[in-house]
Nucleic acid binder design. Structure first.
Lengths: 136, 136
DNA sequence: TCCGGAAATTAGACAAAGTCCAGATTGCTG
DNA sequence: CAGCAATCTGGACTTTGTCTAATTTCCGGA
């Protein structure tokens, strides 16, 4: 994969998103790093050189990406949401003291014995978060 | 179990917490209901008749309970933390549209195939959240 | 090319959750 | 009762995120 800005436009189009300048920048920030970023971090990255994108646009765009399935939301820290450019099935490892968040491939993980869902409900996703901290 | 205010004092003492009036009220709110409550909800319950406990105390006390292992923190909603008086191993079912949160007993659930932890790290907890929504 | 409307972006006011602090209360213990 | 530590308090403050009304951008058609 090559996460150039040009390729971002195609990625956006393939997800039914009109590729504007700001959206390309935001997608580039997320995908070129392949990291979990908060809205704040995205804003800081996108506006490093000169202020280019407003707070409202960053939030709107991240929400749009979420709806269109381009990114995933990771809720591990009560104070902020992380956005994850990796949408393949996977879980998360969260280092509580440092705040570092990394992926656990879902390949070998098996979860069994979950009870049936309440009637009329469908699963939207299963989040598995392993919280770790430095030993002593 | 009998979650009277009198028994709360003993519960607090057994967790090495000095049982003050406010702490007993907050513990009572959580344990008599056996429900997941947010800090806001706790405050509303505790102050129904007349204002008795300040916001700062509610937050401080919930944090204290957390440290002492009296309650658990459940992070499923980006906008607020829930506190869970059930500290036995269990997972959570979260109804996305209604915000309703319920327990999944850990008894029959088995999680296997997790990769080894990074060196020098210990598990603090494994959170499994099943997110569901109403069909259609 | 010019026009008009739809889509997107913007600044900044606002809201809600949670933190912080300095001062007041409480409750021992001598 | 005096002194001291623990606790509680109101309120200012911070941070994350939302909302809105006004502007800008984009694009198709005349």
């Amino acid at each position: 994969m090559d996460y150039t800005r040009d390729n971002m436009a195609g990625l956006l189009r393939s997800h039914d998103i009109n590729p504007t300048h700001q959206r390309i920048e935001i997608a580039h920030a997320l995908f070129s790093r392949q990291e979990h970023l908060s809205a704040d971090q995205v804003m800081a990255i996108v506006n490093t050189r000169h202020s280019e994108t407003s707070k409202a646009t960053v939030y709107n765009t991240l929400k749009l990406f979420l709806e269109k399935g381009l990114v995933r939301e990771v809720i591990v820290d009560p104070s902020k949401v992380f956005f994850d450019p990796n949408t393949s099935p996977h879980h998360h490892l969260y280092e509580v003291d440092s705040g570092k968040l990394s992926d656990i491939d879902a390949g070998h993980v098996r979860i069994s014995g979950l009870p049936p869902l309440p009637p009329g409900m469908v699963t939207e996703g299963i989040d598995l978060i392993v919280r770790v901290r430095r030993k002593n």
